[in-house]
Nucleic acid binder design. Structure first.
Lengths: 205, 205
DNA sequence: CTCTATAAAGGACATTTGTCCGCCACATGA
DNA sequence: TCATGTGGCGGACAAATGTCCTTTATAGAG
């Protein structure tokens, strides 16, 4: 659920170290900062060096859908650069986040001249398709309870803390449904002592 | 909704024509033939030369989710080749279909040695991510009625005929819900004469 | 033309999910 | 300590969707 790509990150870090005047900059954002806005144009591609972000689509009916949580080594803005289109998603930091900002012409050059880079990019894109399709299918065809329990497990394994609001947006449901389903899950487990108070869940803000 | 990529197709056709011993074969399948099976390994990448296919995930609970309808110039099996994994989806022909079968080692070689090919591939993958994410968001956050009317319009524009069963699987709903929503849509339009009998809808088989 | 077999459509009820709103816990300041 | 404001949770009802099964439409045989 929290995507990462450590190999790609270390590739970029090596590239920066070994290239004089790479034009790639480091930037840091505070938690809760929206550094990419849906509908706007961007001239950088970002790679996350550290921290967690959420990437989400805001629909015209006012609802948000979280496409993915992105962590170390994940790339932002590459679709927009490849297709020369405006941003599809908003991207907002959850924790404090440091990114490499790669100007789009440098990105284009890397694709043209650096087969290793291109290979990483192909890997990254194909992984995304797989995850997006698999998840769409899963969320459409299984019950919410099943989806939520899977999400909780993933969150537990990844050792990250996502607000209820964000989890609901990830599942594409209202907070009310989220709470209801969560309660019925916890009731079934009868793990009041073990889980209810161990902080899998976090109040918003 | 019906995806195509005519430029990519003509690139491959040119490549076949100009390359002696390209190792790429033409194959034809009858309607309703499942030529890629989820969970199996494939050693070819297919590009559709002509016809329409559906690409769908069968979940363990017996339900199917149609990931996409693929037409001319669309590629099948590239994710599996890039990641060296077994097939994610089933692919079944809807009409009679002709494909180019590209052995995986030829595919790998094209990526390694043919930047134009790689560029097409990057375009194709990024388009897929965009479409998959956008659609997942849309289907999660809007009402079925809205989604269905959009689907009918798309189908009408693409001039293709998809069975009700397939449309329901595309929308991730039961046929019962599909019929119900369709009826309420048609009632609202009061276009009984214009639409009900003009063959937007097709009985299964 | 009628009978029958089969597929598609729709009715009825159960379950799931969304919306609206009130209640409660907690924090803050007096 | 108590009053008060705020955010989060859950009750109640409405709307949407799934399941099951009956009804209707269609095609083919006699």
């Amino acid at each position: 659920m929290l995507r990462t790509n450590l190999q790609f990150l270390s590739f970029i870090e090596t590239f920066c170290r070994e290239t004089t005047d790479s034009k790639i900059l480091l930037k840091t954002f505070k938690p809760g900062h929206r550094f990419v806005r849906q509908g706007e144009n961007i001239t950088n591609i970002y790679m996350i060096k550290d921290g967690i972000t959420k990437c989400f689509i805001s629909e015209e009916n006012g609802k948000d859908f979280i496409v993915a949580f992105l962590g170390k080594g994940e790339v932002i803005g590459e679709l927009e650069a490849l297709q020369k289109i405006e941003c599809l998603c908003n991207v907002e930091t959850i924790s404090e986040v440091t990114v490499y900002a790669i100007p789009d012409y440098v990105f284009a050059e890397l694709i043209a001249k650096n087969p290793a880079f291109t290979k990483f990019l192909l890997q990254e894109l194909s992984t995304r398709i797989i995850q997006t399709s698999t998840r769409a299918s899963f969320q459409q065809l299984y019950t919410l309870e099943y989806g939520l329990s899977k999400l909780l497990k993933l969150q537990d394994e990844a050792q990250i803390i996502i607000s209820k609001e964000d989890m609901a947006a990830y599942l594409g449901i209202s907070i009310r449904s989220f709470n209801r389903t969560l309660k019925s899950l916890l009731d079934k487990r009868k793990l009041s002592k073990d889980h209810k108070n161990t902080g899998i869940l976090q109040p918003r803000k």
